[in-house]
Structures are given as structure tokens and as C-alpha cells.
Amino acid sequence: MLIKNTVGKKIIMAITGQMLVLFIVIHMIGNSAIYVGGLNAYADRVHALPLLVWIFRLVMLMIFSLHIMIGIELYLENRKAKPEGYAVKQDLRATFASKNMLWTGLLTGAFLVYHLLHFTFQVINPEIAALRIHDAAGRPDVSGMVLQSFQNPAVSSVYIFAVIMLSLHLSHGIQSSFQTLGISNERTLPGIIKTGSVAALVLFLGYVSIPLLIFIGVMKG
């Protein structure tokens, strides 16, 4: 049984993780539509297929639940396996990111709850909810909602902080998932590690730019 084996658990983590990464990449590309003023069109097109949206949401929920549950289990097991630390410990390869996967993950998760309430269910700032406010073309004004939200420094900070957490998570997670799935070898591992960090950086920039640019006023509604 995959879920009972130490390697099996990791494989589930890696597969769910990679799916999440895939979503994050697509989501980033979708969000980038905001730069060309196409976010509303994009959102509208997506929402035109409610059945697909809900299937997608269900799958995401399962993936997330698995990822989170096993992530917590791994963490607890690992902590139990090392009950006593060293008075002096020097890390030669382990990084801040690799040692804090649970925390960066959980913080990302907490953000996500907030984010869904914020942009998907729009219960946090109902006054700007795109569900009610429509743009000139009669589509929900997702773009306006985003732009207005990020003018608030508190909201931008939450997003920026979350993106930092996510990027840390991925700076270790991406390469790690390849190693876990046995795709790396002696020759390719260094490259995969580097690519993982670069990908995390690209995602970081892609995500952080929106709240940042809006907040500092480069991008206006």
C-alpha cells in the first residue's frame, strides 16, 4: 500500500505537489492577463463552464487534503524519529526551506483559505465583490476587485508574505519531487536542483509583481 510505506507517502506528496505546481503555474499565467487588461475575459471564459469548474475544485480539494494530511504525518513521524537534537549542529546541505516545509506549506494553506474567501467567495470585502460589480462588457469585474484590494497595504502584505512562503516551499519542493519520483540521477540532480530554485524564483516574481506593482501604484485601475 502506497499510503502506508515511507517511500509511498513521499510519492503521493510528490505527485500531489507537482499537480499543485501545475495549477500554480496556470494560475499565474491566468493572473498575468491583468497586465494586458484581459483578466475579466479570462475569468469569464473559465466560469462559463460551471461543471468543469466544480470538478476541478473537487479534484483540487482532494489533492490538497492528501498533500496536507500526509505532509503533517511525515512531519510528525520525522520529528519522532529525531527526538533529541545536537548541542551544536552544522547543516551542510539542508536549507531553511527544506527544514520548514510544513510551516511554509501550512502558511500557504492558511493564506489560501483567506484567498478563497477573498477572491472566490468574496466574503471579506463584499463592497468590491466582482460577483456583484460588473465591468463595461457586463462581465464580473475581477480585475477591478483585484486592483482595489491590493491598494490596501494590509492585503498586499498578506499576499506578498504568502507568496514568499509559497516560493520557499517550492524552492525545495520542486526539485525534491523529482528526486522522490526517481527522475533524477547523479548527472541530472544538480541541474534539477538549480532548475527548481529558478522555477520557484520565476513563480515568486510572477506572483509578487501583481500586489507589489498595484500597491506601489505602478498599475492602476
Binding site: 515511507t6 507517502k9 511525515l74 520525522n78 524519529a81 546541505r93 527544506s98 527544514k99 525545495h172
Partner: peptide
């Protein structure tokens, strides 16, 4: 009672 490998790579270094 060994832990799971989360690819820290400390082992190789040591």
C-alpha cells in the same frame, strides 16, 4: 523508527 526522507541531502554530505 527511522524517519522519512524529505531530500535534505545532509546524509551525502556526512
Amino acid at each position: 523508527g527511522f524517519g522519512n526522507c524529505t531530500n535534505h541531502y545532509e546524509c551525502q554530505a556526512a
